[in-house]
Every structure is written in structure tokens, then in C-alpha cells.
């Protein structure tokens, strides 16, 4: 080791201890735990999605499932991002530990935002703009043959803050008019690549149900979403046709499971 006496303090030698990066729990689901933490530098906010081992599964099977799901989620996010679909950016994946570090989206789910907007006087215009953004995002996703798998209003976020500048000098700015900022699709844990109309129709159906179950004015709203969807996804006709069928019989085509 070098001559430590002549060098100023912080640059002497590798520190003996590493201070663990702080992380705060923000959500615990059935499959994963989501923390807010940082990536690379303390100034770069990041979201950690951690899939803990399940004690009830055989360890080998457990490791395989965790790894597989982690990789498939990261793959979908990266693919979507590079095609310009609004999803969180992936920073780092440790598939054997079941960790994905990704961009932290500051905001609220469409579900919460809608409730707020509908309560306000004259919130209708904002809601319409939001529905169009949502429809466009889902349309782009399906045009890229990516199926979300759990498309609910809770899994679409509305940015409240945008990041300005490159990561290492990141600064966040509060968005004044939420409806001007794009929506972000999150949680691709059940997502997959698929060209099947059925899968895409089921995505839409699940979203429709999510609207219907949480928002009283749902029917009108979802119509706006579908219109924007069809505009941004040119080959959406067969999917729309299929959606009729799905509506008649429900989400499950096969009567298994």
C-alpha cells in the first residue's frame, strides 16, 4: 500500500468498511418486494425489485424460477424501452439473487390520479388527456408484440417528477400539469412476448375490468383508451374483434386452472 502520510485523507486507502446502501420498503407483493434505493452513486435514485426465495419450493426449482422470471422481466423492459415505449429503464440485474435495479418513477398510479381528478371541478379534460396517453402506451406495447399480463390501472404510473440531466448529475423537477407528462407502464412480472390476438385482447379486457371495478364513469373512460389504442396500433382490428369474444366469456379461454 502506498505512502499514506503524504496524501489527503479521503484518497488514502480503500476503506475497511463499506456503508450499506440504505433502502426503504415501498411495496410487498406476492412474488417480489420493492425498495427505493440508489444505484452507483447516492444521488441516483433507483428502484430495487427483489424476489425473495420461497421456502415452500424445492431450492433448485426456486432458484430456477426466480432466475427465469427476473431475466424475462428485465428483457421485456429493455426491449420496450429501446422501442420508445414508456417503461422504467433497467440499470442492473442480478438474476441469481433475484434482483433488478431500475429507474425509480416518481408519481402515482393512474388509479389514484383518476380518483383525484374526477373529484376536482373541471378535471374531465385532464382525464381525457390521460386516457389518450394510456391508450397510446398500450398500443405501442402491443405493436411491439409485448403483452403486459397484468394490465391494471395500478400498474400504469403518472409521473409527478421528471429527471433532468444525465444520471450522475440527476436533478428532479416537479411536473406542474400531470396530464402533460406521459404515463409509464410498470410491473412486467407477468409479461411475455406474444403475437397472439388473444393475449393482447386479454390485456385490454383486464384493463377494462380494472376501470369498471374502481371508477364509476369507467365505460366512457375506457372508450377513450381504446380509441387512442387503435390509433397508435395500426393492426389492432383483429385484437378489437377478439376483445368482443373475451368480454363474452371472460379472461380464461381454456378451462384449466
Amino acid at each position: 500500500m502506498g505512502d499514506t502520510t503524504t496524501i489527503p485523507a479521503p484518497f488514502t486507502i480503500t476503506p475497511a468498511v463499506q456503508i450499506p446502501t440504505p433502502k426503504t420498503l415501498i411495496k410487498q407483493g406476492a412474488e417480489a418486494i420493492v425498495y427505493r434505493t440508489t444505484y452507483l452513486l447516492p444521488t441516483i435514485p433507483s428502484l430495487l425489485k427483489y424476489r425473495p426465495p420461497k421456502a415452500y419450493r424445492h431450492p433448485i426449482l426456486d432458484a430456477r424460477l426466480t432466475k427465469h422470471r427476473c431475466l424475462s422481466e428485465a428483457r421485456l423492459l429493455i426491449r420496450a424501452r429501446s422501442l420508445g415505449i414508456p417503461v422504467p429503464a433497467v440499470y442492473f440485474v442480478d438474476e441469481s439473487r433475484g434482483e433488478i435495479y431500475m429507474e425509480c418513477i416518481e408519481g402515482d398510479s393512474v388509479r389514484d390520479v383518476l380518483d383525484d381528478m374526477l373529484m376536482q371541478e373541471g378535471g374531465e379534460g385532464k382525464v381525457d388527456a390521460l386516457m389518450v396517453k394510456m391508450g397510446e402506451a398500450v398500443g405501442k406495447l402491443h405493436a411491439a408484440d409485448i403483452v403486459h399480463g397484468d394490465l391494471t390501472t395500478s400498474n400504469v404510473m403518472v409521473r409527478r417528477k421528471v429527471r433532468k440531466g444525465l444520471l450522475c448529475a440527476a436533478q428532479e423537477e416537479v411536473v406542474e400539469h400531470v396530464e402533460d407528462e406521459g404515463v409509464v407502464l410498470i410491473d412486467f412480472g407477468l409479461g411475455s412476448m406474444s403475437t397472439a390476438e388473444e393475449d393482447k385482447a386479454v390485456d385490454l379486457y383486464v384493463l377494462e375490468r380494472a376501470f369498471a371495478s374502481t371508477h364509476p364513469k369507467a365505460e366512457k373512460l375506457f372508450k377513450d383508451v381504446l380509441e387512442a389504442y387503435q390509433r397508435s396500433y395500426k393492426k389492432s382490428k383483429p385484437v378489437m374483434r377478439r376483445l368482443q369474444g373475451v368480454r363474452m366469456r371472460g379472461r380464461k379461454r381454456t378451462m384449466i386452472g
Binding site: L71, A74, R81, S82, A89, V90, V93, K164, L167
Partner: peptide, 26 residues
């Protein structure tokens, strides 16, 4: 292999970070 032009430098940066992870996730 950046296909879509990213208007903001920030977006280009995060796309590059994602592509680096690609070699791991396949």
C-alpha cells in the same frame, strides 16, 4: 443497435445502460 432516435440525451443514456444488461439477460 439504437433503432429509435432518442431526443433527450438522458433517454439515450438509459437505453445504453439497458443494452449493457442485455448481454446478461439475453
Amino acid at each position: 443497435k439504437m433503432q429509435v432516435p432518442q431526443d433527450r440525451l438522458e433517454d439515450a443514456e438509459t437505453e445504453v445502460l439497458g443494452k449493457m444488461v442485455m448481454s446478461v439477460v439475453g
